[in-house]
Write a protein that binds this DNA or RNA. Structure first.
Lengths: 203, 203
DNA sequence: GCGCTGAGACCGACCAGTCGGTCTGTTCAT
DNA sequence: ATGAACAGACCGACTGGTCGGTCTCAGCGC
């Protein structure tokens, strides 16, 4: 991110993001990326070792961005419950800001076979553990009911994914509308009282 | 369905389910299916028009099974809230019974490019609308709080998916444990009172 | 001239789908 | 009953095309 960054490399990446997001991994050929970036195969293979690495690089880039944003924002909050709420908000904001990367991360990186699958699960699990950790804190602080936080974390992750995926696909529902809805639903799901939900919603 | 069904066709389908579930669409060649089914390319193309049709056929088959089971079970329940709860249970049971097909449906059918994408979304939406419809009924019957049922339906669908996907991948958490956890979380998420959740859990 | 960047022709592997042919089982005229 | 005629399931070598990746060479700044 980024000095002026010699622009061949960046053009290649831009074209790759566009194509991968639009058509997926297997339906994007290196030739497509070359055409869109007005470069050449030589340039592509000079800057990157393989098509696969370009793709995984983008996935990692997005995961990194999201994780960093989450950690920064969470660190500023004091109670478990607020952290959890913040994490939700940051997720939505980040998915919105990086729509194309989000689509690659959430959709195009799925179902690519055993090789990719493991990495994909690993990243996914990192986020789930993060959610679970803060849910556990909130339980200990007595802010939410004692629950199976592992299942709850999965449910949260899945719920967020699904809403974002629908939005990425169709542009509907807009995140500004989805966020309050999701907030209500997810905060309720862990047994937070109605008053507190309303407090949190006004942040 | 139907008669004893000459077993070449069935062997091909069995092999296809196995391979597609394991390695995904693009990493499964027709030659792989041939090898596993101890048939021949000729046989495959005698029984099916294309690799794509085999895959989509499996996706449709699973969607059909799930939809049928849901409709049958839901029809027997009387209140919206019980219908919603039943739908959740049936989903988990069906995913469990048809683990391989479920993996194809939930994972391998994602990110296959524009051609597949539309169909995939359409099926997904059918289920989401079904959830939403019964949530709406429950709202009208006063069983659950008035909420954004569309968002809630997405959240439910995503939550269920995520838990099942994790289970399909790693075998953990077992559905017997996941179901009560999910039940609690999801029923809470739409504002059902604690007593009623406990009633529903004992069915 | 030398090293870095980029161009694009080319290579080899792979793969979905085809097609001529075989093989098994059934029908029916004798 | 038998064997000729046929049907349709099945076989697998082959084709046409695609695509990731390599290689050679050209431009250019130093």
């Amino acid at each position: 991110m980024t000095e002026i960054e010699n622009n061949t490399r960046q053009r290649i990446l831009d074209a790759a993001v566009e194509r991968f997001a639009q058509n997926g991994y297997h339906n994007t050929s290196v030739a497509d990326i070359v055409a869109d970036s007005r470069t050449s195969k030589g340039a592509v293979y000079f800057h990157f070792p393989s098509k696969e690495k370009i793709f995984l690089g983008l996935v990692d880039e997005f995961a990194g961005i999201l994780e960093k944003r989450l950690q920064t924002a969470i660190a500023k909050e004091e109670s478990g419950i607020r952290r959890v709420n913040t994490a939700l908000r940051i997720c939505m904001e980040t998915f919105t800001s990086y729509q194309k990367l989000a689509k690659i991360f959430l959709i195009q990186a799925v179902g690519l076979g055993a090789a990719f699958e493991e990495k994909q699960r690993e990243i996914h699990l990192r986020f789930i553990k993060l959610i679970q950790q803060h849910l556990d804190e909130a339980v200990q602080e007595g802010d939410i009911l004692p629950i199976d936080t592992e299942i709850a974390a999965y449910a949260w992750m899945g719920a967020i994914n699904e809403v974002v995926i629908e939005w990425v696909h169709t542009g509907h529902p807009a995140p500004q509308r989805a966020l309050p809805g999701l907030q209500t639903v997810l905060l309720r799901s862990v047994g937070i009282t109605e008053e507190r939900i309303r407090q949190l919603e006004n942040l």
